[in-house]
Nucleic acid binder design. Structure first.
Lengths: 163, 163
DNA sequence: CCTACCGATCGGTAGG
DNA sequence: CCTACCGATCGGTAGG
C-alpha cells in the first residue's frame, strides 16, 4: 500500500479515503477481468456457427482482453490466489464456467470431425495456457501490430507449428 | 518460514541449523530447475537431426522436467522474480540462453520449409507458454499417463487443434 | 490528505 | 532443536 500510495503521490493512510481495503482493490481487478472473459464467451457463441469458428472468435477476443488491459490481466492472473474466501470462490466459479463452455465447443469440434481427436482437457489447457505470455509481453509497451498477433496466434493454435 | 518449519515438525528458528536463509532456499530451487532445462537443450541438440526433430525432442524433455519435479517447477516459475539481484540475473541469463537456442531452431525450421512462416517470437513464446499448465496439473497428484501427455502435446503443438 | 501510531507478522539471531 | 526475542515492515485507524 505504501508503494501504491507513492505512485499516486500521497501517504498510505490517505489511500483509505478512496478505497476501503487492499483486498477490495484486488477483488475489483480480478472480477473485472473475469467478467470480461465471460463476455467474450457470449459474443463468440453468438457470432460463430461451427465449433472452429466459435473457438477462432474466442481466441481473438481473448487476446483483445489481454492487449486492452495487460496490467489488470497480469494482476488477476498472478494474484487471484490471494483473494478472500468468498470472492475467490466467485472467481473460480467464473473460471470454471468459461472452461466448461470452451470444453463443450472442443468436444463438438471433435464430434463433427473439425478438430483432432485428442484428450479434451489437454487441448483446453494447452490452448488457454498458450495465450498467457501475452500479458507479460504487452505490459512493456511494445509497438506491436495487434491484428498481426491475433491472426498469427489463430494460425498457430489451429494449424500448429508445422507447415 | 514458520509454515515450512511446521510442515517438517520444528520451530522456525531451528530451520536455520539446516539452511542459511530463506533466499538461499529459493535460489537452490530456481537454479536446479534452470539447469535441468538447459540440460534438455543439449540432449535435444545431440539427438535431433532436423529442426522439427530437435523441437519435438525438446518438448518431450521439457514435459519430463515438469512431471518429474512439479513442485519445484511451480516455485521456480512463480517466484523467480523474488530472487536476489545476482541469482536473478543468473537465472535470466540461463533462460535467455534457452530461448535463444530454441529461437535458432525455429528459424532453421522456417528456412528449410518444415515450419510455418510466422513471427519467430510469437512461435517461441506460444510454444513455451503452452507447456506451463502442466506444473499446476501435476502438483495435485493425478494418475495420468505421462507418455500420453508427451505424445498428445507434440501432436497438438506441431499439428494444431484442427484436423 | 497528513501525522502519529497500533497490533500482527516476518526473517532471523542469541544463547543454551 | 527450543525459548526468548529483535528490528523491520505491513495493513489499517484515530484525529485533525
Amino acid at each position: 500500500m505504501r508503494d501504491l500510495a507513492g505512485a499516486v503521490g500521497m501517504e498510505a493512510a490517505s489511500l483509505y479515503n478512496h478505497i476501503s481495503s487492499k483486498s477490495e482493490l484486488l477483488e475489483t481487478i480480478c472480477m473485472t477481468i473475469a467478467d470480461q472473459y465471460l463476455g467474450t464467451l457470449a459474443v463468440a457463441k453468438k457470432e460463430g456457427q461451427t465449433p472452429t469458428e466459435k473457438i477462432t472468435t474466442l481466441i481473438k477476443l481473448h487476446i483483445r482482453v489481454i492487449t486492452a488491459n495487460p496490467h489488470m490481466v497480469a494482476v488477476a492472473h498472478d494474484e487471484w490466489r490471494h483473494l478472500d474466501q468468498l470472492p475467490k470462490q466467485n472467481f473460480i466459479n467464473k473460471r470454471n464456467q468459461y472452461e466448461m463452455t470452451l470444453k463443450g465447443w472442443i468436444n463438438e469440434g471433435k464430434k463433427v470431425g473439425q478438430l483432432q481427436n485428442l484428450d479434451t482437457e489437454i487441448m483446453l489447457f494447452t490452448l488457454l495456457s498458450s495465450l498467457q505470455w501475452l500479458h507479460h509481453w504487452f505490459r512493456s509497451e511494445r509497438s506491436i501490430d495487434k491484428e498481426k498477433i491475433e491472426y498469427e496466434m489463430v494460425e498457430l493454435l489451429l494449424g500448429g507449428l508445422k507447415k
